Amino acid sequence: MAYVACIALLVGAFAYTFWPEKNPFVQRSASRIDFLRERRESIFANLRDLNFEYKAGKYPEEDYATQRAMLEDEAATIVREIDTLERV
């Protein structure tokens, strides 16, 4: 009799924890704007790293200018798209 009660309690606990509609930890699907914000932060971090490495002497001037321009162009495109999506 005690085994039946333990099994019922165990099944109930699993059902309560993992039931899809009751689970508060379900992740919502990421939207396009969430992806763009994450990408923007990544690009800004890359720009900070690039500036640091350039000042440390790890990049020649030409490579630094090329990489920085490429990252800044990508960041501008992403910021523009974020602004467009937020207006809608």
Rank of each mutant, 00 (worst) to 15 (best):
A8V: 11
R40A: 13
G57M: 07
D34M: 09
N46D: 09
R39H: 05
D63L: 12
V11L: 11
I82C: 01
T77D: 12
S29R: 15
K22V: 07
T77S: 12
A30K: 14
F18M: 03
P60L: 08
I7L: 05
Y59V: 02
Y16F: 14
R80G: 07
Y64V: 03
E86Y: 02
T77V: 04
K55N: 12
I7E: 06
T84Y: 08
G12H: 12
F14M: 09
D73I: 02
A13D: 03
W19L: 08
V79Q: 14
R80S: 11
D34G: 05
I82L: 06
F52S: 12
V11N: 10
Y16R: 14
N46C: 01
S29H: 15
T17Y: 13
N46W: 02
E86N: 06
D63Y: 05
G12M: 12
R39L: 05
V11F: 14
F14Y: 07
K22C: 06
T17R: 14
A76H: 08
A45G: 06
N46L: 04
T17W: 09
E86L: 08
G57E: 05
Y16C: 14
I82V: 06
K58L: 13
A75P: 00
E53T: 01
R80N: 08
E62Q: 06
F14K: 03
P20E: 10
D49M: 05
V26K: 15
G12L: 12
V26D: 11
M1A: 15
R68A: 04
A75M: 09
F52V: 09
I7V: 08
R80I: 02
N23R: 10
D49S: 09
A15G: 13
A15N: 15
E81I: 07
L85S: 04
L71T: 02
P20Q: 13
D63E: 14
A8E: 13
N46Y: 02
N23C: 07
K55V: 00
E62S: 02
F52H: 10
A76W: 03
D49F: 05
G57R: 08
A65Q: 13
I33W: 09
M70C: 04
S42V: 01
Y3W: 10
R87M: 04
A15F: 15
R28L: 11
D63W: 10
